[in-house]
Protein backbone atom coordinates (compact mmCIF):
# COMPACT_ATOMS: atom_id res chain seq x y z
CA UNK A 1 0.00 0.00 0.00
CA UNK A 2 1.38 3.36 -0.97
CA UNK A 3 1.78 5.93 1.76
CA UNK A 4 0.88 9.52 1.02
CA UNK A 5 1.87 12.39 3.24
CA UNK A 6 -0.25 15.55 3.33
CA UNK A 7 1.12 18.96 4.28
CA UNK A 8 -1.91 21.23 4.37
CA UNK A 9 -2.68 23.81 7.03
CA UNK A 10 -6.45 24.07 6.67
CA UNK A 11 -7.77 21.52 9.17
CA UNK A 12 -11.02 20.78 7.38
CA UNK A 13 -9.36 20.23 3.99
CA UNK A 14 -6.70 18.09 5.64
CA UNK A 15 -9.26 15.79 7.24
CA UNK A 16 -11.27 15.43 4.05
CA UNK A 17 -8.11 14.70 2.09
CA UNK A 18 -7.16 11.96 4.56
CA UNK A 19 -10.64 10.49 4.14
CA UNK A 20 -10.45 10.73 0.35
CA UNK A 21 -7.06 9.02 0.17
CA UNK A 22 -8.05 6.28 2.62
CA UNK A 23 -11.22 5.60 0.63
CA UNK A 24 -9.06 5.31 -2.47
CA UNK A 25 -6.95 2.64 -0.80
CA UNK A 26 -3.86 4.59 0.20
CA UNK A 27 -2.25 4.86 3.59
CA UNK A 28 -2.45 8.55 4.41
CA UNK A 29 -0.77 10.64 7.05
CA UNK A 30 -0.81 14.37 7.62
CA UNK A 31 1.31 17.05 9.19
CA UNK A 32 -0.52 18.56 12.15
CA UNK A 33 2.21 20.61 13.74
CA UNK A 34 4.26 22.84 11.52
CA UNK A 35 7.45 22.92 13.57
CA UNK A 36 10.28 21.54 11.48
CA UNK A 37 7.99 20.18 8.73
CA UNK A 38 10.70 18.83 6.42
CA UNK A 39 12.15 16.59 9.16
CA UNK A 40 8.73 15.20 10.05
CA UNK A 41 7.90 14.48 6.44
CA UNK A 42 11.20 12.75 5.80
CA UNK A 43 10.98 10.58 8.91
CA UNK A 44 7.51 9.40 7.86
CA UNK A 45 9.12 7.97 4.68
CA UNK A 46 6.13 8.43 2.38
CA UNK A 47 5.81 7.26 -1.24
CA UNK A 48 4.33 10.59 -2.30
CA UNK A 49 3.95 14.03 -0.75
CA UNK A 50 1.02 16.38 -1.29
CA UNK A 51 2.44 19.77 -0.41
CA UNK A 52 0.55 23.03 -0.01
CA UNK A 53 2.56 25.96 -1.29
CA UNK A 54 1.28 28.31 1.45
CA UNK A 55 2.00 26.81 4.83
CA UNK A 56 2.13 28.86 8.03
CA UNK A 57 5.51 30.33 8.88
CA UNK A 58 7.47 28.33 6.35
CA UNK A 59 7.00 28.47 2.63
CA UNK A 60 6.09 25.23 0.83
CA UNK A 61 8.75 25.88 -1.76
CA UNK A 62 11.46 25.96 0.90
CA UNK A 63 10.22 22.70 2.40
CA UNK A 64 10.32 21.16 -1.06
CA UNK A 65 13.93 22.24 -1.52
CA UNK A 66 14.88 20.81 1.85
CA UNK A 67 13.16 17.49 1.19
CA UNK A 68 14.70 17.26 -2.26
CA UNK A 69 18.16 17.66 -0.75
CA UNK A 70 17.69 14.57 1.39
CA UNK A 71 15.31 12.12 -0.25
CA UNK A 72 13.99 11.53 -3.73
CA UNK A 73 10.24 11.16 -3.37
CA UNK A 74 7.55 12.38 -5.79
CA UNK A 75 5.85 15.62 -4.77
CA UNK A 76 2.60 17.19 -5.97
CA UNK A 77 2.31 20.88 -5.15
CA UNK A 78 -1.08 22.33 -4.28
CA UNK A 79 -1.49 26.02 -5.05
CA UNK A 80 -4.43 28.27 -4.38
CA UNK A 81 -3.11 31.47 -5.83
CA UNK A 82 -4.44 31.84 -9.31
CA UNK A 83 -1.29 32.91 -11.01
CA UNK A 84 0.96 31.42 -13.58
CA UNK A 85 4.11 32.27 -11.65
CA UNK A 86 3.30 29.88 -8.79
CA UNK A 87 3.02 26.98 -11.17
CA UNK A 88 6.22 27.80 -12.95
CA UNK A 89 8.01 28.17 -9.61
CA UNK A 90 6.77 24.92 -8.11
CA UNK A 91 7.92 22.97 -11.16
CA UNK A 92 11.28 24.71 -11.20
CA UNK A 93 11.81 23.70 -7.55
CA UNK A 94 11.40 20.10 -8.61
CA UNK A 95 7.75 19.24 -7.95
CA UNK A 96 6.52 16.38 -10.11
CA UNK A 97 3.13 17.97 -10.72
CA UNK A 98 0.94 20.75 -9.40
CA UNK A 99 -2.78 21.18 -8.91
CA UNK A 100 -4.76 24.35 -8.21
CA UNK A 101 -7.38 24.70 -5.49
CA UNK A 102 -10.23 24.05 -5.56
CA UNK A 103 -9.47 20.86 -7.40
CA UNK A 104 -11.66 18.09 -8.63
CA UNK A 105 -11.01 15.20 -6.18
CA UNK A 106 -11.11 12.55 -8.92
CA UNK A 107 -8.51 14.49 -10.89
CA UNK A 108 -6.35 14.68 -7.78
CA UNK A 109 -6.54 10.89 -7.34
CA UNK A 110 -5.74 10.41 -11.00
CA UNK A 111 -2.69 12.65 -10.82
CA UNK A 112 -1.52 10.87 -7.68
CA UNK A 113 -1.76 7.47 -9.33
CA UNK A 114 -0.04 8.82 -12.47
CA UNK A 115 2.88 10.24 -10.48
CA UNK A 116 3.20 7.05 -8.41
CA UNK A 117 3.14 4.93 -11.55
CA UNK A 118 5.82 7.07 -13.16
CA UNK A 119 8.07 6.92 -10.10
CA UNK A 120 7.73 3.17 -9.53
CA UNK A 121 8.12 2.48 -13.25
CA UNK A 122 5.54 -0.20 -12.87
CA UNK A 123 4.71 -1.29 -16.37
CA UNK A 124 0.99 -1.70 -16.74
CA UNK A 125 -0.36 -5.12 -17.48
CA UNK A 126 0.53 -5.83 -21.07
CA UNK A 127 -1.47 -8.97 -21.80
CA UNK A 128 -5.02 -10.08 -21.22
CA UNK A 129 -6.02 -13.73 -21.66
CA UNK A 130 -3.50 -14.21 -24.42
CA UNK A 131 -4.24 -10.88 -26.08
CA UNK A 132 -1.16 -8.71 -26.35
CA UNK A 133 -1.74 -4.99 -26.00
CA UNK A 134 0.05 -2.53 -28.18
CA UNK A 135 -0.95 0.95 -26.96
CA UNK A 136 1.16 2.78 -29.56
CA UNK A 137 -0.67 1.01 -32.33
CA UNK A 138 -3.97 1.02 -30.42
CA UNK A 139 -4.33 -2.70 -31.04
CA UNK A 140 -5.09 -5.97 -29.25
CA UNK A 141 -3.07 -8.70 -30.90
CA UNK A 142 -3.83 -12.42 -30.65
CA UNK A 143 -2.25 -15.25 -32.59
CA UNK A 144 -5.02 -15.29 -35.12
CA UNK A 145 -6.13 -11.71 -35.43
CA UNK A 146 -5.52 -8.07 -34.64
CA UNK A 147 -8.25 -5.82 -33.28
CA UNK A 148 -7.89 -2.07 -33.64
CA UNK A 149 -9.29 -0.03 -30.74
CA UNK A 150 -10.08 3.69 -30.91
CA UNK A 151 -8.24 5.99 -28.50
CA UNK A 152 -11.26 6.07 -26.17
CA UNK A 153 -11.68 2.33 -26.16
CA UNK A 154 -7.97 1.88 -25.43
CA UNK A 155 -8.12 4.27 -22.46
CA UNK A 156 -11.13 2.41 -21.06
CA UNK A 157 -9.60 -1.02 -21.65
CA UNK A 158 -6.29 -0.10 -20.06
CA UNK A 159 -7.92 1.29 -16.94
CA UNK A 160 -10.08 -1.83 -16.58
CA UNK A 161 -7.03 -4.01 -17.14
CA UNK A 162 -4.89 -2.13 -14.63
CA UNK A 163 -7.52 -2.95 -12.05
CA UNK A 164 -8.58 -6.33 -13.35
CA UNK A 165 -11.04 -8.05 -11.02
CA UNK A 166 -11.96 -4.81 -9.27
CA UNK A 167 -14.97 -2.59 -9.84
CA UNK A 168 -14.12 0.53 -11.85
CA UNK A 169 -16.81 3.19 -11.60
CA UNK A 170 -18.16 5.14 -14.57
CA UNK A 171 -16.84 8.24 -12.88
CA UNK A 172 -13.32 6.84 -12.83
CA UNK A 173 -13.54 5.87 -16.49
CA UNK A 174 -14.81 9.33 -17.28
CA UNK A 175 -11.96 10.92 -15.33
CA UNK A 176 -9.37 8.90 -17.21
CA UNK A 177 -10.92 9.88 -20.54
CA UNK A 178 -11.14 13.58 -19.67
CA UNK A 179 -7.59 13.60 -18.39
CA UNK A 180 -6.55 12.34 -21.84
CA UNK A 181 -8.35 15.20 -23.64
CA UNK A 182 -11.37 13.12 -24.57
CA UNK A 183 -14.19 15.26 -23.22
CA UNK A 184 -17.05 12.86 -23.88
CA UNK A 185 -20.50 12.77 -22.29
CA UNK A 186 -22.36 9.99 -20.55
CA UNK A 187 -24.05 8.61 -23.68
CA UNK A 188 -20.75 8.45 -25.51
CA UNK A 189 -19.20 6.47 -22.65
CA UNK A 190 -22.01 3.90 -22.86
CA UNK A 191 -21.52 3.65 -26.62
CA UNK A 192 -17.74 3.24 -26.23
CA UNK A 193 -18.13 0.48 -23.67
CA UNK A 194 -20.59 -1.47 -25.78
CA UNK A 195 -18.32 -1.16 -28.83
CA UNK A 196 -15.40 -2.37 -26.75
CA UNK A 197 -17.49 -5.37 -25.66
CA UNK A 198 -18.30 -6.22 -29.26
CA UNK A 199 -14.63 -6.01 -30.26
CA UNK A 200 -13.58 -8.18 -27.32
CA UNK A 201 -16.13 -10.86 -28.13
CA UNK A 202 -14.93 -10.77 -31.75
CA UNK A 203 -11.54 -11.68 -30.32
CA UNK A 204 -13.13 -14.60 -28.52
CA UNK A 205 -13.46 -12.87 -25.15
CA UNK A 206 -17.18 -13.07 -24.62
CA UNK A 207 -18.60 -11.28 -21.59
CA UNK A 208 -15.18 -10.04 -20.59
CA UNK A 209 -16.60 -6.84 -19.16
CA UNK A 210 -19.29 -7.35 -16.59
CA UNK A 211 -21.67 -4.59 -15.53
CA UNK A 212 -22.33 -4.12 -11.83
CA UNK A 213 -25.53 -2.16 -11.54
CA UNK A 214 -25.06 1.29 -9.98
CA UNK A 215 -21.40 0.50 -9.24
CA UNK A 216 -19.44 0.17 -12.43
CA UNK A 217 -17.65 -2.40 -14.52
CA UNK A 218 -15.31 -5.32 -13.89
CA UNK A 219 -12.91 -6.87 -16.34
CA UNK A 220 -12.89 -10.61 -15.57
Amino acid sequence: MNKIYIAEDDRSIREELLQLLKNAGYAAEALTDFQDPAEKIISAAPDLILLDINLPEINGELILKEIRRKIDVPVIMVTSRNSATDEALSLSYGADDYITKPYDPTILLLRISAVLKRSSNKASNRTYNGLRINPAKGALISEKSEIILTKNEMIIFQLLLDRQGEIVTRDELMTALWDNNEFINDNALTVNISRLRVKLSDAGQENAIETRKKQGYILK
Binding site: D10, S12, E16, L17, L20, N23, S80, K101, Y103, P105
Partner: peptide, 14 residues
Protein backbone atom coordinates in the same frame (compact mmCIF):
# COMPACT_ATOMS: atom_id res chain seq x y z
CA UNK B 1 -12.84 31.55 0.09
CA UNK B 2 -11.22 28.86 -2.06
CA UNK B 3 -10.34 26.98 1.13
CA UNK B 4 -13.90 26.29 2.33
CA UNK B 5 -14.93 25.64 -1.29
CA UNK B 6 -12.15 23.04 -1.61
CA UNK B 7 -13.17 21.55 1.66
CA UNK B 8 -16.82 21.29 0.62
CA UNK B 9 -15.89 19.77 -2.73
CA UNK B 10 -13.94 17.07 -0.92
CA UNK B 11 -16.82 16.49 1.50
CA UNK B 12 -19.24 16.03 -1.40
CA UNK B 13 -16.86 13.58 -2.95
CA UNK B 14 -16.27 11.61 0.22
Amino acid sequence: IKLPVSSLLLMCHN
